[in-house]
């Protein structure tokens, strides 16, 4: 299952992908059959999308984060800092021991 299908669901039967990037004045049309979805980016910003077309466009552009994913990535960053600190302590273990 792709990220788009995972977040936006299966595409409608008559769905044709439009190249939105080439049209700066493009306005998304609301689809009454589409359940409104809330999307997140990596910084926790949020947007509501009202059609499959809008949803797949945002998700393709990097709005494929979720609060759970953001929380996990933050934890991974914390883990990275912890490991760096542990490594520094390991390298300077002997010097630290001499001070204690």
């Amino acid at each position: 299952m792709t990220v788009i299908t995972n977040i936006c669901g299966e595409p409608p039967k008559d769905f044709i992908k439009i190249d939105i990037a080439s049209d700066p004045n493009f306005v998304f049309v609301n689809d009454s059959d589409f359940n409104v979805k809330q999307l997140f980016d990596s910084e926790g910003n949020t947007v509501f999308v009202n059609s499959y077309n809008e949803c797949q466009h945002y998700v393709s552009g990097g709005w494929d984060f979720t609060p759970a994913k953001n929380a996990e990535l933050a934890m991974q960053d914390s883990l990275l800092y912890v490991v760096v600190v542990l490594l520094v302590l390991t390298f300077f273990k002997k010097k630290i021991r001499s001070y204690i």
Partner: peptide, 10 residues
């Protein structure tokens, strides 16, 4: 991979 490398390196 940097995170995995550092974890294992430690």
């Amino acid at each position: 991979y940097i995170l995995i490398f550092l974890l294992y390196y430690f």
